[in-house]
Structure formats: structure tokens, C-alpha cells
């Protein structure tokens, strides 16, 4: 996958180029304002670059229509956000089902798929809870279940531990690491080195340029998470 980008008004990204292989766990790191979020938005098909090319699964993003982008987001991608972005006053089960609403999967299978995903993040006992009744860590796990439910190829996580304490953060990172081990490609955005080091590769972004792109020598695991 190659990617070039000319900036949006303020030139957020100035010509970054890298390839992510299927099954890789990549952290994109940089201070705030470095352009890492914009990069994630483009990688996640949420925003089109104003210049350059982005190849996903052998096809350039330019070739996709808006509707096709939506379908790719639905079928092939899962998103985890810093602020969880769960629907308020809606049960865990319904929240996790959300991507299924827009998928081609039969409605009769939704419940089972959603429960499976919820079990996978260890929240089987919280299925009927509403987000307001959950802790921050639990909410993020619901969001992970939602990202998982469509069995996507790539999972994008934008500062997933940013709003969490270290214990919950550790749990969340443990789960994300588990997803990678099961074969999902994971792209993680963070500004913290100790979070980034869960990945097997770190791309450091600064002022819209790639500063460094290197393998991680000693990878962290779920238990070693310290804030």
C-alpha cells in the first residue's frame, strides 16, 4: 500500500509513503497536530486525500464511489475511537449490532454475531446494559465488539486508551493485541510510546512527514501495560 498526500488547506500531510501488509500490527505515532489522525481517516476510508494515491486491497481509493467506500468500511474495516462513540440510551447489544444494520448479513443472524463479539471482549454479562451504566474500560470494550462484529480485515484504533485509566487501558490493549494474533490487521494511532509498543512496527509522524518507520524490538503485552 502506498500513500501520498497533499494537504487539506493547511497541508496536514506532505508526502508520506508506506505499505502495510495483511496481518501486520502497525502503530502510527506522533504528537498532536502531527497529522496522524488525518492519516487514519484516509486509511479508514473516512476522508479522501486531496492528492496522491491510496491503494487498498490492490485498488486505488479514487476508483471507489462514496457508496462503495461505505460498503468497504462496513465489510472490511472496524473502528475504535478515543471517545468510544456509543449510542446513548441504547443497549450494548444494539450498539454492537449497529454495523450489521448496514451489512448484507441476514437479520436472523445478527443477535448471534453480536453476542459472539460481546463474549469475545468479555462483556457477556453486560449485554442488556446501557452505556451510561458501564465504566470507561467496559465502554471501550463494547466499541471493540462493535468493530469486530462484521469480522473486518483491518481494525483502526484511534487513541483507544486515551480516555482510560491504566488498568482498563491495559485490558483494552490486551484485547487489541489478541485481535492481531487472530489475524486481523491492526492500525493503531497513539501519541504514547508505551501504547505504540504493542505493535510490531511503529511509524512516527511529525509535521506531516514520516520521521521514522521501524520494527519494534521488544513488544509489550497486555499485562505489561503501565501508564
Amino acid at each position: 500500500m502506498t500513500y501520498y498526500d497533499e494537504a487539506v488547506e493547511t497541508r496536514v500531510l506532505k508526502g508520506v509513503s508506506f505499505t502495510v501488509q495483511e496481518g501486520e500490527f502497525v502503530s502510527i505515532m506522533g504528537p498532536s497536530g502531527s497529522g496522524k489522525s488525518t492519516l487514519l481517516h484516509i486509511l479508514g476510508f473516512l476522508e479522501r486525500p486531496t492528492g496522491g494515491a491510496y491503494m487498498f486491497d490492490g485498488k486505488s481509493m479514487q476508483e471507489y464511489t462514496e457508496e462503495e467506500l461505505a460498503h468497504v468500511r462496513n465489510d472490511n474495516m472496524g473502528f475504535i475511537f478515543q471517545t468510544f462513540n456509543l449510542l446513548p440510551r441504547t443497549s450494548v447489544l444494539e450498539n454492537v449490532k449497529l454495523p450489521l444494520l448496514y451489512s448484507g448479513i441476514k437479520e436472523s443472524e445478527w443477535d448471534e454475531l453480536a453476542r459472539e463479539a460481546i463474549e469475545a471482549v468479555g462483556l457477556g454479562h453486560r449485554v442488556e446494559y446501557e452505556p451510561s451504566q458501564l465504566s470507561g474500560g467496559e465502554r471501550q470494550r463494547v466499541a471493540i465488539a462493535r468493530a469486530l462484529v462484521n469480522k473486518p480485515d483491518v481494525i483502526f484504533a484511534d487513541e483507544p486508551t486515551g480516555n482510560l485509566d491504566s488498568k482498563s487501558g491495559g485490558q483494552v490493549m490486551g484485547i487489541i493485541q489478541g485481535l492481531h494474533e487472530k489475524g486481523h490487521t491492526v492500525i493503531l494511532i497513539t501519541h504514547e510510546t508505551y501504547t505504540a509498543e504493542y505493535a510490531d512496527r511503529i511509524i512516527r509522524v511529525l509535521d506531516g512527514n514520516i520521521e521514522r518507520d521501524e520494527k519494534v524490538a521488544v513488544r509489550r503485552t497486555g499485562a505489561s501495560f503501565v501508564k
Binding site: 457508496e67 461505505a70 468500511r73 465489510d75 473502528f79 449497529l98 448496514y102
Partner: peptide, 16 residues
């Protein structure tokens, strides 16, 4: 707005 964004992120089209 957030809800709309989220729905779009998880695959809702404009038509949806």
C-alpha cells in the same frame, strides 16, 4: 451529528 458520523463510519451510506 456524532451519531450520523458513527453510522457512516460503520458503513451507512448517504441513502441509509
Amino acid at each position: 451529528t456524532r451519531e450520523i458520523g458513527l453510522r457512516k463510519a460503520v458503513g451507512a451510506t448517504n441513502v441509509d
